Simulated scan of single mutants.
Amino acid sequence: MSVEPLRRRRAPRGSGEQLREEILDAATELLLESGDAKAMPIRSVAQRVGVTPPSIYLHFADKDALLEAVCSRYFEKLHDEMQAAAVDAGSSPIDVLRAQGLAYVRFALQNPELYRIATMEQGRPGSEVDIALNSSAFVHLRAAVEALIADGIYPPGDSTMLALELWTAVHGIVALVISRPYLPWGDPEELTDRVMRAVCSGHVVSRGFRDTDTPYEIVSWLKEVADERNR
């Protein structure tokens, strides 16, 4: 049985931005309902909005452009999530960093298909998704790293590189949990907390490393410190 598209009244002049938002809303709903980008053809989006498919192409060049816009708009919300996590964590920079890592993973796993589209396919410099992720995730991670360096907790260094390393850690957790859900991860938040604790602590203790230290010497020194504390 064929389904007739909904009829939509002609929008008043100057309301093109409103129609664009309605298209994004419809596409987001279809993605969240199906959990699969393949189940979001342009025709279905147009039908849900109540317009013809050509009307979609007036705002988005193709389906990929529409998906990118959906993901970038969604990930703008991550800014508020990470900001709230920082406030709840208190004044300790290391606690803030761990809390923001948890907030990132929690947010990403709420809608795994949007995360997969946004970060697990080939990107391009300057894309809407990269801009959204930079302002909503990376900026927060780098600010936390800079606070740790300023407090002498982290060694002096490139805060951008350190933030990218931390982002790699939380992204790796999300990517594996999404793509390999059948592995025995346990609770993703507990997994994230363990990984963030290890990564964050690793940068703290690295202040005691010398450039000439071998891996064996580093491990021996860390073992001595641990043994001394546990005595």
Rank of each mutant, 00 (worst) to 15 (best):
A143L: 08
G157E: 05
A137Q: 07
S136I: 02
Y154M: 07
I131S: 13
L166Q: 06
G157A: 00
A169F: 00
I94R: 08
A143P: 00
G157S: 05
P125N: 09
V199C: 13
L114S: 01
P188L: 01
H203L: 12
E113G: 05
V204I: 15
R98C: 06
V205C: 09
L133C: 06
G90D: 00
D95S: 11
L114M: 09
G90T: 01
L162S: 06
R194N: 06
V145S: 01
A118E: 03
A147I: 02
R142A: 04
P93H: 04
D187R: 02
S136Y: 03
W167M: 12
R116T: 12
V174T: 15
S92M: 14
V195T: 08
E165N: 13
L148C: 10
E165Y: 10
L166P: 03
V199A: 15
L109F: 03
A150E: 14
S201D: 14
L97N: 04
I131K: 14
L166T: 02
R142I: 04
R124T: 11
V199Y: 09
R116A: 10
A169S: 03
H171Y: 08
Y182H: 15
V195H: 00
R124I: 09
V139L: 12
Y182T: 13
S127Q: 07
Q100A: 01
V170K: 04
S206P: 05
M120Q: 13
A99K: 04
L162A: 12
E113K: 07
T160L: 13
E190I: 08
A89T: 04
F138L: 15
A198C: 08
I131W: 08
I94K: 04
P181I: 06
Q110C: 08
G126T: 04
L164W: 03
A198R: 09
Q100F: 00
G186L: 00
T168P: 06
I94W: 02
A150G: 04
S92N: 15
E189D: 09
T119A: 15
